[in-house]
Design a protein around this nucleic acid. Structure first.
Lengths: 333, 333
DNA sequence: TTGAAAGCGCTAACAG
DNA sequence: CTGTTAGCGCTTTCAA
C-alpha cells in the first residue's frame, strides 16, 4: 500500500540499506546512486515512517506539552513560545489541555509516555507535587512551568510572583489607596499564594494601609469567578478601594462587577491584574497589570528541555529560571 | 532499560505472546494467568510502547490538528471541541500552529503524515486549495474547517458565512445606519469574501443604504490591522456610520481607532464583529457580533474525521456541515 | 489456553 | 561504496 524503502530499493536495484543511507544523507553512498534513489523516492511519493524510525532510534523527536486551560490567552502565548523553539530544533509537540483537572493531567502524562515523547513540559493544574508525580517525572526529562514551587525535583521556569505582587501593591499604595483587596485563583496554588505574599508585604510596609482577611478571596482562574467574588463583596457592602486580582481574566470579571454596580474604575476602585494578556489592552478594558513573560517562558522551557534531552540522564541537572515581572500601567489603576 | 513484555513474560514464566494477550484483554487467556501478568506488569511499572504497537497495527490513534493562529481566541475554542471529542473516542491530537503561513502549514502536514497520524483536521491558512493540496489530502482522512469553499474534495465544517454577513448588515440597516463599511481579513479568503457577500446583499436590498468600494478594506486577521485600517479611514475623513468587521479581533481594533479619534461607539459609528470570542464580552468592549459555533465546529470536525477513519477509504464519503450563525447584540451596534 | 515464529518499516553494525 | 543481517517492541497467525 504505502511505499517503503524496500519498494524503492527494488526499483533502484539496490539493497534497502543503501536506500536508508541515501535518504539520510549518510556518508559512503555513491553520489549517482544517491541521486537516483532520491529521484525514485520522490517520484513514488515516499514518506518516511517516523514510527518505524522511532522504534529503532528510541527517540521520536516529539515533546509533550500539557497546559491547564487553552482558553485562557495566557497559555496559548506560552505554547507559541514552546512551539517556535521546538520547531526550530526539529521537534514537534503534542499539545494537551488538562482543563485544570489533575486526573486528566495524569492521564495525559501517562499517554505521552506511552507515545514515547522525548520530554515533557508541564504547566501543572495543581501546585502540590506528590511523591507519585515525582516518580513519574523521573522517567523522562521534564520541565515545569508557571506556578511551581522550587525544589520540585525538576527544572522549572516561573515568573517572580512575590515580586510581581509586591510591585502591584506598592503601585496601588503610591496611588493613595488604603483599603486593599486580593482576589486569587485556587487557594492552594503556589503562584496565587506567592503573589499574595508579595502584595501582603507591600501592604504591611505602609502603616495606613489595610488588607484585611475578609478582603482576601479565592475562586478559580476564570473571569466568572472574578465577577462572582466581587459582586458578593459589593453586595455585602464590603468595599475596597483597590483590588489586585491574581490574573487578568479574574481582573476583567472584577471590573465588570464593579461597573455593573454603578461604581467607577479606577475612580472608586482601582483594579490591577497579572499576566498582561492581549485582551487586557482591548478597547476600554485598559487593564493595568503585571507583565508575565509568557512567550519567553515557553521558549525557555523548551530550550531547557531540549538541552536535557541531549544529555545522558546522569548528566542532566535541574535548572530553575525566574523571570522578571513588570508593571504595565493602563487605565484601571 | 525500559520494561517490555519480554521482561514480564520472563518473570511470569510464560511466552510474551501470552503477555500481549493478557495486557490487551483478549479472549483465551486463563484468568489466573492474566491476573498474575497484570500484577507483574504494574509492579514493574510497565508502560506499553505505543510506537511499537503503531508500527504493527498501522494506526496510531492520533490525529493532527493544524490551526493558523493559536493566539486568536477563536481557534483555541475550536481546538477544545476537537480535543474533547477526540479524547472521548480514545484519540490524542498533535496540535500545530501554522501562524497563517502556508509553507509552515505544508511542512506540518508532511510531518504529521510522517508521524502517521490516522487523520487530519485543518483550518487552512489560505483559502485556495491547490491541486497539490488535494493530492496530499487524498493520502489520509482529512476534514477542513472554517474558511473553505465547498467542493474542496474533502469533508468540511463551516459556518454559514453569507448568512452571517447578511444578518449583520440587516441589523445595522434596521438601526438606521446608511453608510456601511466592511473591514475584512485577507482579501483572498473565502470566509472573508462570503461574509462580505452576505453583507453586500443586505446593503443592496435597501435603497437608501450605501456600501461604496472605498469603504471595503482588507488586511489580516489581527486587531492591529483593524486599528490601522480604521485609523486611515478616519484620517481621510472617509467616515462610515457603521462597520462590519470580518472577525472580532479586527472589530476590537476598529473600536479602538474610533475611540482614539474622539468619536463614540455606537453613537457615531456602530461596530459589529464576527466569531463571538470571549473577549467580545469583556468589560466595556461589549461588542455586538455574530456567534460562530466554535466549540461545536471542532467537535463536529473530530466526529466526522473519526467516523472516516473507521471506514475503508472507498467507503469514505465527504460531508459538508454548515453551521448557523446567530446575532449577539451587545453595546457597540 | 498457550507457544513459536513471522513481520510491521526502519537503522546500524559487520562484512565484503 | 554496498549488501547481509539482526533487532527495536509489539501483534497476530498457525500449531500444538
Amino acid at each position: 500500500m504505502t511505499v517503503t524503502i524496500k519498494d524503492i530499493a527494488e526499483k533502484a536495484g539496490v539493497s534497502y540499506a543503501t536506500v536508508s543511507r541515501a535518504l539520510n544523507y549518510k556518508y559512503g553512498v555513491n553520489p549517482s546512486t544517491r541521486r537516483q534513489i532520491l529521484e525514485i523516492a520522490s517520484s513514488m511519493n515516499y514518506s518516511p515512517n517516523a514510527i518505524a524510525r522511532g522504534l529503532v532510534k528510541k527517540q521520536t523527536h516529539t515533546i509533550g506539552l500539557i497546559i491547564p486551560d487553552i482558553t485562557n490567552p495566557f497559555f496559548p502565548e506560552v505554547a507559541r513560545g514552546v512551539e517556535d523553539m521546538s520547531e526550530k530544533m526539529g521537534y514537534s509537540i503534542f499539545l494537551c489541555n488538562s482543563n485544570w483537572d489533575k486526573t486528566k493531567e495524569n492521564r495525559y502524562v501517562k499517554l505521552l509516555i506511552e507515545k514515547r515523547v522525548d520530554g515533557l513540559i508541564l504547566a501543572p493544574s495543581a501546585s502540590v507535587i506528590t511523591e507519585e508525580d515525582r516518580q513519574i517525572y523521573s522517567r523522562l526529562p521534564v520541565v515545569l512551568m508557571s506556578g511551581v514551587q522550587s525544589g520540585s525535583g525538576t527544572s522549572s521556569v516561573v515568573v517572580d510572583n512575590v515580586k510581581g505582587g509586591y510591585i502591584a501593591g506598592k503601585y496601588l499604595i503610591e496611588k493613595g489607596r488604603k483599603k486593599l483587596c486580593y482576589i486569587g485563583g485556587a487557594e492552594d496554588s503556589f503562584s496565587v499564594k506567592e503573589r499574595f505574599e508579595g502584595f501582603f508585604q507591600a501592604a504591611e510596609s505602609s502603616i495606613s494601609v489595610s488588607l484585611s482577611p475578609d478582603l482576601v478571596k479565592f475562586g478559580d482562574y476564570r473571569q466568572k469567578s472574578g465577577y462572582r467574588i466581587m459582586k458578593e463583596l459589593l453586595e455585602n457592602r464590603n468595599i475596597p478601594d483597590a483590588v489586585f486580582a491574581s490574573n487578568d481574566l479574574l481582573a476583567i470579571g472584577v471590573i465588570q462587577a464593579i461597573r455593573a454596580s454603578g461604581l467607577k474604575v479606577p475612580e472608586d476602585i482601582s483594579v490591577i491584574g497579572f499576566d498582561n494578556i492581549a485582551a487586557a489592552g482591548f478597547g476600554e478594558v485598559e487593564l493595568t497589570t503585571i507583565e508575565h513573560p509568557k512567550y519567553r517562558m515557553g521558549e525557555l522551557a523548551a530550550g531547557i528541555l531540549l538541552e536535557k534531552i541531549d544529555l545522558k540522564p546522569e548528566m542532566q541537572e535541574n535548572k530553575r529560571v525566574v523571570l522578571e515581572p513588570e508593571l504595565i500601567i493602563r487605565r484601571t489603576a
